[in-house]
Amino acid sequence: MSERTTSSSWASTIAQALELGGVDCRSLFARLGMDYSALDDPEARFPQDSMTRLWQLAVEASGNPAIGLNMARLSVRPTSFHVVGYALMSSRNLQEGFSRLVRYQRIIAEGSDVSFHPTVDGYELVFAIHGDRLPATRQSAEASLAHTLAFCRWLTGKPMRPRLVSFQGPPPENQEPYREAFQAPLRFNAEHYGIVFERADLDAPLPSANEGLAQLHDRFAGDYLARFSDSRVTHQVRQVLCRLLPQGEPKREAVAQALLLSERTLQRRLQEEGSSYQQLLDDTRRELAGQYLAQANLTLLEVAYLLGFADPSNFFRAFRRWFDTTPGEYRARL
């Protein structure tokens, strides 16, 4: 089955943030069977689940559950975001830049889906962080928030203060590192990870804007996406499943229609990528189950329905098969 992956440029930035926290990433990479030297290869990519384990081991090694916020302390480099960083830089303003980030996010890391929309009093950038077979860590999401904001401050040359920063999951015991990193009101147990920006901050012209370069970077990014992931139906099916599951168990026919494919073509292309529709449905539900149970405000019944189970008892049976425990015991451990 095709694995989600993370670009070497983003993985390298994560490694720098962990090393800033005293973690020996070289030994952790070796322990996880990853090639540390590949961090310098711009074409290299790392399995998403290996990156998830890296975060888990780094928290254990450092004893610092807020280590993801170290991403705000690094010297900002556009290369952290692969070619997408340069596309952002050359945009007219951050509003246009974020539209590019949404379009090209998969180049940086396939484990993130980014959306961007206006709100009553500003603009919100929303991050949905997924794992592959393992549920994504909180630190991975917090790192994305912290580094994106640091990048925006660097791009604009201004100490931007968001209107709000939202986090899934309960508030940490020590919120001081969060206040220091974001300099903004914080909301925990939120529906999603996101940053609400002031409208004026996103509409202001960027000092590095260059329309000719922006078009050039669009072409580079488009070519990379076409080469790397447009052919990977596995990833696209997962995205459609995440969207459709809250409405009930999606039929293969509905997913094929959403991707403008026939059922037979969908089946064949998944087979070529070493997967199947049923396997992807099961994997996506398992991954989301881990994420939803980390949100204390969701009842077990709500989690079952969000995963598309009409009968909660089917959810409980599936959960025991996935995690060898009950949803209640799993949540208690969290």
Rank of each mutant, 00 (worst) to 15 (best):
M1Y: 07
R4C: 04
T5R: 15
T6A: 12
S9F: 11
S9K: 09
W10T: 01
W10I: 05
L20Q: 10
G21V: 06
R26T: 09
L28T: 05
L32Y: 02
D41E: 12
F46N: 06
F46C: 04
Q48R: 15
S50E: 10
S50T: 06
L54E: 06
A58F: 09
E60S: 13
L69V: 11
R77F: 07
G85F: 10
R92D: 13
Q95Y: 11
G97P: 11
S99G: 14
R100V: 12
Y104V: 08
P118W: 09
V120F: 12
D121H: 15
D121W: 08
G122P: 14
I129V: 15
L134Y: 10
T137P: 00
A143W: 02
H147M: 13
G157S: 05
K158D: 06
V165K: 13
V165M: 12
P172Q: 05
Q175S: 12
R179N: 10
Q183P: 00
F188R: 02
F188T: 09
N189G: 00
N189S: 14
A190F: 05
H192V: 09
Y193N: 11
G194R: 06
P205T: 10
P207K: 02
N210L: 00
L213V: 01
A214K: 11
Q215G: 12
L225N: 07
T234V: 14
L245M: 07
Q247P: 02
A256Q: 07
Q257P: 00
T265K: 10
Q267P: 00
Y277K: 04
Q278G: 14
Q278P: 02
Q279C: 04
E287G: 04
E287V: 04
Q291M: 10
L293C: 07
L293Q: 06
A296Q: 14
L300Q: 11
E302R: 13
V303E: 08
F309Y: 15
D311N: 11
P312K: 02
S313T: 11
S313F: 03
S313C: 01
A318P: 02
A318T: 03
F319R: 03
G328I: 06
R331K: 11
